[in-house]
């Protein structure tokens, strides 16, 4: 593998990592508030099909992203109503949301199968991105810059703001937060809506950034990877960034190695297994470093029933 390939590989890996990163950051905030929403895959599919449909119809990808976020947030409100207002089981409801999103996107997308749009390109002038290194800085779609800003924004919100502190309090000890007057249900509704919107934007990356088409099940399981990454990252935004890019790197290296015409003596099955081996290795490393207590929010997945 020669050095000329380094820049293309980095650009491809950024593309592979971005949708997972955005969706996982949304889920991180949801889980920090004490809610486990397994519907990420379904919401990403809703975001993907809405982003495609709007961009195809209006030619405006910005509007596509906006409406993708709105549609997925609306879908997440079904989940929020069932689990927060009616205290339904979060795991079952989240799975149902994924099944619903898969079906809804397939149904809604029927009219858009077999139609092309163009990729949502860099907003910077092309002249800025002529040198390979400048391409790394200026050559990306706005969605990529958004994902990087989002890492910092989520970190800042959770660590540095009063609202973030309240959200974490609700996730760690809902009864205490309730007893000092915070609306546990209200905070969780807001967190779930944010998670839904981010899943929608993550989903919009598929038609706008990666492969400008609509096809059923376009996200092909990336929502589940986003969910796993939140745990993998021990609910920390910067670690999540590292995890998403590590995943993207492993997947991209696999493709580039196979595409080079030689596997370097390594069987292709090993490359296919590498993402999972990397996951196990990182999980082991995290457990070795952790000092006894779990990093998970204490109220994660538990319904809030103050009267009981």
């Amino acid at each position: 593998m020669n050095m000329d390939l380094v820049v293309p590989i980095i650009i491809t890996l950024i593309g592979a990592s971005t949708p997972i990163l955005i969706a996982a950051l949304g889920e991180l905030v949801v889980e920090k508030s004490g809610v486990l929403n397994l519907g990420v895959e379904g919401m990403m599919l809703i975001g993907a099909v809405v982003a495609f449909a709007v961009t195809y119809t209006t030619g405006n990808p910005w509007l596509g992203i906006l409406l993708a976020a709105a549609a997925s947030a609306a879908a997440s409100m079904i989940f929020a109503f069932l689990t927060l207002s009616l205290s339904a089981n979060q795991v079952a409801t989240g799975l149902a949301l994924t099944i619903f999103g898969t079906g809804f996107s397939a149904l809604f997308g029927q009219a858009y199968t077999g139609k092309p749009i163009s990729i949502f390109r860099s907003i910077f002038p092309e002249a800025l991105a002529t040198h390979p290194l400048w391409r790394l800085v200026f050559g990306h779609s706005p969605l990529v810059y958004f994902s990087l800003l989002l890492v910092v924004a989520v970190w800042w919100f959770l660590k540095k703001t009063r609202a973030g502190l309240i959200l974490r309090a609700v996730g760690e000890n809902d009864l205490s937060a309730h007893s000092i007057g915070y609306s546990v249900i209200g905070v969780r509704y807001a967190a779930v809506a944010f998670g839904g919107a981010m899943a929608g934007i993550g989903g919009s990356c598929f038609p706008l950034l990666l492969t400008p088409q609509w096809a059923e099940r376009l996200t092909a399981g990336r929502g589940w990877i986003a969910l796993a990454l939140v745990v993998f990252a021990a609910w920390r935004p910067f670690r999540l960034f590292g995890g998403a890019y590590l995943f993207g790197l492993v997947m991209t290296i696999e493709l580039y190695t196979k595409a080079s015409g030689g596997t370097g003596g390594v069987p292709s099955e090993f490359w296919a297994a590498l993402p999972y081996l990397a996951t196990i290795a990182v999980l082991v490393l995290i457990s070795l470093r952790r000092s006894g207590h779990s990093a998970a929010p204490a109220c994660l997945g538990k319904p809030f029933l103050p009267t009981n």
Binding site: T12, T211, T219, A220, T252, Y256
Partner: peptide
């Protein structure tokens, strides 16, 4: 059989090489 994003990335990897 069906992972369009990965198909596109594989195409990029092949063209880059």
């Amino acid at each position: 059989w069906h992972d369009p994003a990965k198909e596109a990335d594989a195409a990029r990897a092949l063209i880059d090489q």
